[in-house]
Simulated assay, not measured.
Amino acid sequence: MSDHDEESMAESETDSEIDPSELTDKELQEAFSQGKLKPGLNVVLEGKPIASNDVNGLKQSLLNFKKDLDWLERLDVTTAPVPDKTGQNGVEGTQNSDINAEDDFQREMCFYRQAQAAVLFALPRLQQFKISTKRPDDYFAEMAKTDHHMQKVRQKLQAKQQAMEKSEKAKQLRALRNYGKKVQVEVLQKRQKEKSNMMNQIKKYQKGLSDKLDFLEGDQPQKKMSGAPGKKKGPSAKRKYKDQKFGFGGRKKGSKRNTKESFNDVSGFKASVAHGKGPHRPGSKGRKNANKRPGKKVRQKIKNKGR
């Protein structure tokens, strides 16, 4: 191996060790002064490339992929927009060249008039070739989705609707349950309040603080007499007798004991009743023994006589 080859190998090894991305500006300057930097590492930009407008080449490329087909196969329409009879602000005769591209309204109106011109050009030609331009009333287009796919969609929609209905029913049941609990609590509170009020009224009556017994009737409406409307009907004779006999509330213990006044009152005493000398039937020994049962021997004698 010659000395020249060894130097070239050493230079290549030295160049391979140098990574331009990791070198600083000072190291780059030293490498440039030693001749270790070679052309191609630094690219000098001379500016943006200028695009060439090759008109003949573009036309040739258009002819290469263009096909000679009938108009019915292509249905392409290239026309100028319909002339605007009333221009902007009511001025007649606005030309296409006068349209401002930056004005959104004028630009959209230009597109509209161009589509209108295309329709006016295409419809007569289609009618000339006897091609219908309206869909018949009994036209049914083929669906893009299969019947199996639409059936799956229908089942999914039905399942979703049923889930929504179940959820709505559950909400209604919860609302009714909560309302029922609320009503039940109100009824119990009302009953407790009425019971407490009645107990208070009873205690007042027992202590003699009140002589009214309207609280015993509860919330039942008072019946009015037909002869005297507006007046309360008094108690019946039967009710008065029972009240007089049994009482109607108050203390009952010791109520039948004799007092000094009752002991001395003899207005209701009847000797005939007290000694059993009241009226009796003929042939009887007295009212006391009128219903007395005969003895066993007498009954046996009566039984033997009947045989």
Rank of each mutant, 00 (worst) to 15 (best):
A141V: 09
M143A: 08
M143F: 01
A144D: 15
A144L: 13
K145F: 02
K145Q: 11
H149Q: 15
M150D: 00
Q151A: 06
Q151P: 06
K152Y: 02
V153T: 09
L157A: 14
L157F: 00
Q158S: 04
A159E: 15
K160V: 02
Q161S: 14
Q162Y: 03
A163I: 10
E165N: 05
K166Q: 06
K166N: 07
K166L: 00
S167L: 07
E168I: 03
E168Q: 05
E168V: 01
K169M: 09
Q172S: 02
L173V: 00
L173Y: 04
L173E: 13
R174S: 03
A175N: 06
L176S: 09
R177N: 01
N178W: 03
K181C: 01
Q184C: 06
K190D: 12
R191L: 12
R191D: 14
R191K: 14
K195Y: 08
N197L: 11
M199G: 07
N200H: 09
N200W: 01
Q201P: 05
Q201N: 07
I202P: 08
K203H: 11
Q206C: 10
G208I: 09
D211G: 07
D214H: 04
D214Y: 06
L216M: 12
L216P: 02
E217V: 01
D219G: 00
Q220L: 11
K223I: 03
M225V: 08
M225N: 12
A228P: 06
P229C: 05
K232I: 07
K233H: 00
P235H: 12
P235Q: 02
K238L: 13
R239E: 14
K240H: 03
